Simulated scan of single mutants.
Amino acid sequence: MRGQRVMWPFRRSNRRMAVPTLTVDPTERDPTARALREAAERRDWAAIRDLLTPVIDPDDHAFYVTAVAHSDGVQDWIGEWIEAEPRSTLPVLVRGARAIYWAWEARTSGRASQVSQDQFKEFWRRLRLAENCLDEVVDRDPDDTTARTFLVMSARGRQVDTDEANRRFGEVVTRHPWHRIAHEQMLQYRCRKWYGSHEEMFAFAREAVAKSPAGSALGHLVVVAHLEQWLDLPVGEDDEYLDDDAIRAELNAAADHSVRHPDYRRRPGWASVHNTFAMGFSKVGDLRSAAGQFEVIGDQVTSWPWQYINNDPAIPFVAWRDDATAAED
């Protein structure tokens, strides 16, 4: 989160904070994701297996495995599933995916200087478990793009070098060129706050969007890159950076190629893509474009990317939506 600062549109800088009336649904109201979370809470691995097995699309599969991996306590019972079905890679995949989020829970979201050595040791131990599981999956099933996507995710925590991170990402996109979560994770690796630079980050985002087919959800990568640049700037320079006609034009071009294109179709996890565009348009002061995204979103606020502004994503979401709606009147 960006301190406790609340940032409003350039012409509305004195606006008071809105009172949130919404809560984040981690399943994004997707019925399959909700069923998976409920099954995880019941420790019902058979139900999880039956829900995940029919999912063929690589993007959908990664989203649904993420829904399970985000569930508390999976690490406590996943061994039962592995023992019951030793020939299946699915429970090993779930164990590996869960171990990544479990590792970040040990590390916490604090800056490195605020994390103890014991926390780091546990973080690395859990990440090793994750990668051991995911490596086993890809050894047994080389075309498992979900396992390979989670290896892209773990690359940052494991501090792998650029060549290895690129190799992991390449293994995903060779099999599914426009894999959304893999692109999102690789973009984070390319950020200056991790192992890249602003130049690398923008080059990656722009190339991915330019090469993606019309209607691809990857257009939001350009928005994320600009938000990451904004986050990295000192107070005062950050909002000045976003108050730029060239950036507004680039965000609109990305939306036209992506979520506003006639060929665009919503897929599981779509709400976070539209929330990213909504925040991006709001931050650059293009409230009419933001209003179009809020109309699509309705009440489906997501943690990402509003958490960059406030611990409660609903607070900035509701305030920006009110501003955007007022601009439409």
Rank of each mutant, 00 (worst) to 15 (best):
E250T: 05
Y264W: 15
S113N: 08
G157E: 10
Y195C: 02
D322M: 11
F150W: 15
S197Y: 11
W320N: 13
Q114H: 07
V301H: 07
D239H: 09
R158W: 01
A130I: 03
F150I: 03
W104S: 10
R95H: 11
Q119A: 15
R34N: 05
Y264P: 04
V65I: 15
Q114C: 02
T174E: 13
A182M: 05
A103Q: 00
L218W: 09
E85L: 08
R2I: 04
R111I: 02
G236M: 05
E184I: 08
E131W: 07
S113G: 11
A165D: 07
W270P: 03
A84M: 07
R156H: 06
A106V: 00
L227V: 11
T302D: 06
P54V: 04
E80H: 06
I181K: 06
Y308A: 05
R111D: 14
H70I: 01
E164V: 13
L52K: 13
A112S: 09
H274T: 05
V235Y: 09
Y264R: 03
T149P: 08
L22D: 00
E38H: 02
H226I: 09
G3T: 01
G96F: 13
M279I: 01
N311M: 10
S116P: 04
D322F: 03
P20H: 01
C191L: 07
V152E: 04
R206E: 14
R175A: 10
R49Q: 13
E41S: 04
T53A: 15
W304I: 05
W306G: 03
M279Q: 15
Q159E: 14
V284N: 07
H220Y: 15
G196D: 08
D135Q: 13
S258H: 11
A203D: 15
F123T: 05
V152M: 05
N166S: 13
T162V: 03
E184W: 12
H198I: 06
L242M: 14
D256K: 15
E105R: 07
R248L: 06
I181L: 14
H220V: 08
Y189N: 06
S258C: 11
K193E: 12
G3A: 07
A47V: 02
D243G: 03
L218M: 09
M279S: 06
G215K: 10
E105C: 00
S13V: 06
H226N: 13
D322R: 14
D30F: 02
I181C: 05
L36I: 00
D256R: 14
F294R: 02
D243W: 12
M201T: 13
R156W: 09
I181G: 04
